[in-house]
Simulated assay, not measured.
Amino acid sequence: MNVTLLHTAYGLTPGTRAFAEQIAAASGGELTMPDFYRGEIFTDQDSAMGHLEKVGYMELYSRLDGLDVTDQILVGTSLGASFAQRMVTQGAKPARLVLIGNVNPHKPERPWPGVDTQVHHFTQDTFVDPALVATLGQAVTASGARFEHVPTEGPGHLFFEPRLPEYDPDLTARTIQQIVS
């Protein structure tokens, strides 16, 4: 199955590229990695968040206009997870949505469109609110779609990024298998 991965606020880093390539290889499909940062890569959170604030969330999101993820695995990582979830609520039809390290508030007045969804995160990830995960899970299951919540005990945010202290190659490998199965 084809895979589209939306990157974090750090940009399309070598670690993110490697993670995406591993998912695509495991799925046996083609890979799309839109670079909505247009080549910018950041190595620290302050610079990454500063870029996001300078350019603006909606401007960055608009750079994904026209991206077709129909019948694909759509993987969003951190900022990319926010964009991926937003895309699905606005009509995108991936076969599966995978959110890593971020979940947006789900508006109850807007029914979930029946897309199977996985949420992966550390239990002490400051970017993930457990109440938002629970609300999303209720909306997904109410739509008749499958919801998988995969929390991992401990602190951290991006377990697939080798340059960060929370990098966990075993967790990365397990996550890839869960995404493609």
Rank of each mutant, 00 (worst) to 15 (best):
T77E: 08
L79G: 14
D129H: 12
Q90K: 13
H121L: 05
Q138H: 04
S82Q: 08
L136W: 04
K93D: 05
T126N: 12
H157Q: 10
V119C: 04
R163D: 13
V103G: 03
N104S: 04
D168V: 01
G114H: 00
Q118G: 08
P113V: 03
A95W: 10
V133D: 05
A134N: 12
R86F: 06
G101I: 10
A134F: 06
T123L: 06
L74I: 00
T123H: 06
L99I: 02
V103R: 05
V98I: 04
R146Q: 14
I100D: 00
D129V: 15
P113K: 03
Y167I: 09
E109N: 14
P108T: 15
Q90L: 14
L164N: 02
P169S: 07
E166Q: 09
A81K: 02
P151M: 10
A92P: 01
Q85G: 09
S78W: 00
Q124G: 04
P169R: 07
P165V: 13
P111A: 07
V150E: 11
R86S: 13
P111Q: 07
H157T: 11
G91P: 08
P151I: 06
P94C: 01
H106N: 11
F147K: 01
E148M: 12
W112T: 01
A142C: 15
Q85E: 11
P151A: 11
D125Y: 03
R96W: 09
G114C: 02
V128C: 00
K93C: 10
R110H: 12
V128F: 03
Q178G: 12
A145I: 05
H121D: 04
R96L: 15
G80R: 00
G91D: 02
A95R: 14
A134H: 06
G101V: 06
G144P: 09
K107Y: 14
P155Y: 08
D116F: 08
H157C: 06
P108A: 14
L136P: 03
R86W: 13
F83Y: 07
A173V: 12
R174F: 11
Q138S: 12
K93M: 15
G156H: 01
A134P: 05
L74T: 00
V75L: 13
R110A: 09
P94L: 02
H157K: 06
N104T: 06
H157M: 04
Q118L: 15
R163T: 13
V119F: 07
D129G: 08
D129A: 12
G154P: 04
G91T: 03
F83M: 09
F159D: 00
R110E: 14
I176P: 06
V103N: 05
Q72L: 01
Q90D: 11
Q177R: 14
R96K: 15
R146M: 13
Q118E: 07
D71F: 06
K93T: 13
R86A: 10
T152Y: 07
H106T: 12
N102Q: 11
K107L: 15
L158Y: 01
